[in-house]
Design a protein around this nucleic acid. Sequence first.
DNA 1: CAAATTAATCTTGAAATCAAGACAAGGAGA
DNA 2: TCTCCTTGTCTTGATTTCAAGATTAATTTG
Lengths: 170, 170
Amino acid sequence: MSDAMSGDAVDRILKQWARERPDLDVSPMGVIGRLSRCAALLSQRLDGVFAEYGLSGWEFDVLATLRRAGAPYQLAPTELFSSLMVTSGTMTHRLKVLEGKGWIVREASNQDARSTLVRLSGEGFALLERALEGHVANEHAILSALPARSVDALEKRLAELLAALETPRG
Amino acid sequence: MSDAMSGDAVDRILKQWARERPDLDVSPMGVIGRLSRCAALLSQRLDGVFAEYGLSGWEFDVLATLRRAGAPYQLAPTELFSSLMVTSGTMTHRLKVLEGKGWIVREASNQDARSTLVRLSGEGFALLERALEGHVANEHAILSALPARSVDALEKRLAELLAALETPRG
DNA sequence: CAAATTAATCTTGAAATCAAGACAAGGAGA
DNA sequence: TCTCCTTGTCTTGATTTCAAGATTAATTTG
């Protein structure tokens, strides 16, 4: 029941609903509200470090996706927007910007004439490697506010939830 | 360590990093990646139900904030954008749209001549009450995929994390 | 009380995103 | 092969959001 006087923003919301709509069981708002709020605050913190490397969050995401794909650090636009959960139109725009900054290069696919593959440039690779260090350090620092045991437990529960959310509904 | 073969999207990412950068401890990406992904998928699911009532997510959020404030369902724009974690400019735009749809009305504050208070209209109130039912039912349904115990545990851990994230850093 | 500071809101212009649709190329089947 | 359906990508137009600055009112100081 998430009792205790946590006193965070979500607790205040739950108290308001309890007063206004005591008939409703709004307990799911506790978990879901905290999850959304954590996500929003986390992404702010992550963006702060990305900015130190002259990157926005989405720029880091695209470069990192290419990087972790392994040599030759090349993927098709469809693979990119599928992984990153954005639309194809969004990816078109992102790639245009990243190409303009010289962090990616594009070249026709041998396999599929419809596709113009995306590859990390040398500069893109180097920039990502640098930013990655800072990013990972940042994530460690953020989670260091919690006992390791809590982080592990959190991850386990999130994995369960993610599995449920990724399962196509029936 | 979130072992087991959960096999979700984040696991695949972690495996890629382990192959490409075995020197880095990217374990924080497991928690943080799952959290972000859960948040994204959740908000899609919630939007689906909001749409059934002709609402977008942000519209529901604003109306709900006014509703749970209690009678007379009236707040200043600053209170709204602070609660909702958006900028003042964003709120100006949102209020213009909601006023155009007739779901809120605005009136000058007695206390502060700089402020034009926002109040739920009768229609806004009625619409929100309806949408709220569907929304809460939806949240219950989503979480019903997990054992109640897991949900409780998840909430506890998220509360810890949220407390850490809301604490101004030093 | 006047001046300086702070606070509340709105305006402006630029980014980023999505939905829908356009199109060309791939692939399956008659 | 010729058609039809699917797939991969881009285009277009509308939304939504933010950052920065403008404005006006409230508050604090000297």
